[in-house]
């Protein structure tokens, strides 16, 4: 029973949504939107598990005064602080806490955004180090990868204005449109088939690892 009920539920919801895709008539046209709405509510409850896991871990650290417990304190402090700000903003703006001018919006603008942008920009360093390593790997595949990368990169940013770079620029466009696109299409078709097989296995209850 503990196995059957979830499997039957997966089967029914999966099939219902799949069929609804082909029926424009009411109420089938609304099935997808309704279930997506439901999924958002359910995900909201799931977050309680997340908070529990996170706080349990860090509060234990703080209590035991493990090495680095100070960082756990910082994390907990900022979590509680920002969440309080969130509730405060939600009350102030009647449920629309992300209205520009609210405190939560301020946190978003001055903390979440710059920190994210900073992490994101790390990619500039890492893309260079990854390219360097690909360059040193003396395997045919790595070499092909690197040659293509250099060709497209130089084609996108012509260093000089001359016939060679003009050619390179047009060649790299062609390169993106034809060979690059060919492999991408092959991979996408494969992914779609693999995902289809997986979805089918999930709906039919063959794949059930996620329900351990």
């Amino acid at each position: 029973m503990r196995r059957q009920i979830p499997l039957i539920l997966t089967f029914l919801t999966g099939i219902a949504i799949f069929i609804a895709f082909f029926i424009p008539h009411k109420p089938f046209n609304e099935v997808q939107d309704i279930l997506l709405d439901w999924a958002i509510i359910i995900a909201g409850f799931a977050l309680l598990l997340g908070i529990h896991s996170l706080l349990r871990k860090h509060i234990t650290h703080i209590k035991k005064k493990d090495g680095g417990w100070g960082y756990s304190l910082i994390l907990t402090f900022f979590f509680v602080g920002v969440f309080t700000v969130g509730i405060f903003s939600a009350i102030q703006y009647k449920g629309y806490s992300l209205t520009p001018g609210s405190l939560l919006y301020f946190v978003y603008d001055y903390m979440v955004i710059p920190l994210s942008a900073t992490m994101f920009a790390l990619l500039a360093f890492f893309i260079a180090s990854a390219a360097y390593r690909a360059f040193r790997a003396r395997r045919l595949n790595a070499t092909l990868l690197l040659i293509a990368a250099v060709v497209v990169m130089l084609g996108r940013v012509p260093i000089m204005e001359n016939a060679f770079f003009n050619f390179l620029s047009r060649f790299s466009d062609w390169f993106m449109f034809i060979p690059q696109m060919a492999a991408k299409r092959g991979i996408l078709i494969g992914v779609a088939l693999g995902a289809f097989a997986m979805s089918l296995r999930i709906i039919l209850g063959i794949e059930r690892t996620y329900l351990q």
Binding site: G44, Y71, F79, V112
Partner: peptide
């Protein structure tokens, strides 16, 4: 370490606020 823990703390607080609003207030409580 300081920036990382601050970032994680702030981002959890932020996403919990957003989810709390989208899931509970808008879709259940209202």
């Amino acid at each position: 370490k300081f920036a990382e823990h601050l970032f994680v703390g702030v981002s959890v607080g932020y996403s919990v606020s957003v989810v709390y609003q989208n899931a509970f207030i808008r879709r259940v409580f209202d």
